[in-house]
């Protein structure tokens, strides 16, 4: 029983990290980034390739995953962060799709659609039992807390104040002599690093990566998690990830109560409800579960 719960909590932890990264970028800095899955993918593949082809250890691979994603964010930022917010949304959406297509096409590097198997996890000394799963979960939860706390510190720092000011009124910031561009790039890179780190964790957790894990659906799920939890709160990001994932995963247990519904219908109902929840949250409780009526 517990190994399954550990698995679900592990997924919540990984998606929690992803939602935090988005919360930093959008909630605090106002960047409408619809391409987060692209950084997630870059991190995952970096960890996978270093771990399997180059024989790196899991810790080094995780660090590299964050680094690769952060570095990838630089050209993206340079090209797009001066754009109006809706264009930024569309461009980042396209970016993530191009990442996926590149993974599929450049199979000399990525093994294409076959994916990469045999990615090693940390804590190899613990064998293959439940202790190892628990250790990995502990790692993720510690990372989650550290990232949330770290981000909390950052947003209360002078840098954080600038970033929030940029979100609220860009022109005022310029008038005060500060150029919004560089702080935005830094935020994009930091968020990308967190997303890439989450990707590395997922790659090691499942032990396998393939391009069909990195579709825009992932981006939309973390956006939904962020909005339902509350965009202006790091706690909200984690809560949102938990709520959305528990709902998506937990609804399989409803099937015993609803024997006449087919699996397709149940899956459709799940996603339709998620879409509806997003609409209702934006309409009536824009601050999310944690934020309340605080309109964003």
């Amino acid at each position: 029983m517990s190994s399954y719960l550990i698995a679900v909590t592990t997924q919540i932890g990984i998606y929690g990290l992803l939602t935090l990264s988005l919360s930093l970028q959008y909630g605090y800095t106002g960047l409408i980034n619809f391409g987060q899955v692209g950084f997630y993918a870059i991190g995952a593949y970096a960890a996978a390739l270093l771990g399997t082809a180059l024989g790196w250890g899991p810790w080094g691979s995780l660090a590299a995953a964050a680094l690769f994603a952060a570095v990838a964010a630089v050209p993206i930022g340079l090209l797009t962060l001066r754009l109006r917010e809706d264009y930024l949304a569309i461009v980042t959406l396209g970016f993530a799709e191009v990442v996926r297509l590149t993974i599929v096409a450049e199979d000399w590097l990525t093994n294409g659609t076959a994916g990469i198997s045999g990615i090693a996890r940390p804590f190899a000394a613990l064998g293959v039992g439940i202790e190892r799963d628990l250790a990995f979960l502990a790692l993720i939860l510690v990372a989650l807390v550290l990232v949330a706390v770290g981000l909390g510190v950052i947003v209360r720092s002078p840098f954080g104040r600038i970033v929030k000011a940029i979100r609220d009124d860009e022109d005022a910031v310029r008038v005060l002599g500060k150029e919004p561009f560089v702080p935005r790039i830094k935020v994009l890179c930091l968020g990308a690093a967190i997303a890439g780190f989450a990707g590395g964790l997922q790659a090691q957790y499942i032990g396998y990566v393939g391009p069909d894990q990195f579709i825009s659906y992932v981006t939309f799920i973390i956006w939904i998690a962020m909005i339902i939890g509350g965009t202006r709160s790091f706690l909200g990001a984690i809560v949102g990830a938990g709520v959305v994932l528990l709902f998506l995963e937990g609804s399989r247990f409803l099937r015993d109560e609803l024997p006449d519904i087919s699996e397709t219908a149940l899956a459709s109902a799940r996603l339709a409800i998620v879409g509806l929840a997003l609409i209702l949250t934006m309409l009536y409780r824009p601050g999310g579960l944690v934020g309340g009526k605080d309109a964003r």
């Binding site: 076959a114 957790y205 393939g210």
Partner: peptide
């Protein structure tokens, strides 16, 4: 799906 099979084998 092959990617599901590979992932399930591994994990």
């Amino acid at each position: 799906s092959s990617s599901v099979t590979l992932a399930v084998m591994s994990a």
